[in-house]
């Protein structure tokens, strides 16, 4: 994709609306003076668009933070709830992501895929004993790993539709057909945006390389990769990619199991799905 097209995409995404239920809940919670802080934070951290806009605002070089902030909770501690709440309200004012985009991409199923990947990614991080900060970073990385897709659905629906259809019909990886029709895949688009928004390096890397695991060491990306396959295997939601990738050796070593052994070991994840659904259905 030529650079001018990237620039255009970056400008368009500024106006990107969030998911309907979070928009509705933010409007409702912010007009209730007694709304609890944790309810507000919960809504924001379960919406990829609101999350990414807050991380963008807070990590902007205007503020020159010595250390990047990767989670909504840390952003709240850093600057205070009211500022975070008002950034979210600004996102809500841009409207709601429509359920019927021209790409025929089901955004509810997409959100369910993103949320369950986020929750499983955090669960995996806990299992391998990462610090609590890293565990919450894994949630954020899982939530944001595919946001390039929803950007395509919103701003390049015709091309994305072709990519989705071909991927489905010929059982090809979606990131491959995206490359064919759009000239860039969702992880590359995510990377461009995440870099532009000055997100943390591990987060950019997890978004950029959640389909090519041979890349350098990044535990965040490994958790997201594994969680992504587990979520697809469990058929939680749908990110539009019909293929489930086997765990490569590095992932098997990291988690001590292959995909099916891992799924057996994790047992029933239905509660993760049910909780995620409660953030989706209007």
């Amino acid at each position: 994709m030529p650079n001018s097209k990237n620039e255009k995409l970056i400008v368009l995404v500024e106006k990107m609306p969030a998911f309907p239920k979070s928009v509705q809940q933010i409007v409702q919670l912010t007009s209730d003076i007694n709304a609890s802080a944790k309810d507000i934070v919960r809504v924001i951290e379960c919406d990829p668009i609101m999350t990414v806009k807050i991380l963008k605002a807070i990590n902007s070089s205007f503020y020159g933070l010595p250390q990047k902030i990767t989670s909504v909770q840390r952003a709240v501690v850093h600057i205070g709830l009211n500022t975070i709440k008002n950034i979210a309200l600004g996102v809500a004012a841009m409207g709601m992501l429509s359920a019927n985009n021209k790409a025929n991409f089901n955004t509810s199923n997409f959100l369910l895929h993103s949320l369950t990947t986020a929750a499983i990614s955090k669960l995996l991080a806990e299992r391998i004993g990462l610090s609590s900060t890293e565990c919450s970073d894994c949630f954020v990385a899982g939530l944001l790993h595919d946001f390039g897709k929803v950007v395509f659905a919103e701003f390049m629906p015709d091309e994305f539709k072709l990519a989705l259809e071909k991927s489905q019909e010929q059982q090809l990886p979606l990131h491959q057909t995206e490359l064919e029709f759009i000239g860039i895949n969702h992880s590359q688009a995510g990377k461009i945006l995440a870099e532009k928004w000055e997100l943390s390096d591990p987060l950019i890397d997890a978004i950029a390389h959640h389909h090519d695991i041979d890349h350098n060491q990044n535990v965040l990306r490994d958790c997201v990769f594994a969680a992504n396959q587990i979520s697809k295997h469990m058929q939680f939601g749908n990110g539009g990619n019909p293929l489930i990738e086997a765990f490569p050796e590095s992932i098997v070593i990291r988690f001590g199991a292959n995909l099916s052994a891992m799924c057996d070991d994790l047992g029933d994840l239905e509660s993760i799905k049910i909780e995620a659904q409660s953030f989706i259905n209007v």
């Binding site: 609890s36 802080a37 944790k38 934070v41 909770q73 840390r74 709240v76 501690v77 850093h78 205070g80 709830l81 609590s132 900060t133 565990c135 919450s136």
Partner: peptide
């Protein structure tokens, strides 16, 4: 206003949020 923990001690998020509060 120094930030307080927005979670209750029995919430899953309490400890982690507290670590952010302490760091700040």
């Amino acid at each position: 206003e120094p930030q307080l923990n927005i979670y209750d001690p029995e919430d899953d998020e309490y400890t982690e949020f507290q670590s952010f509060v302490d760091a700040k």
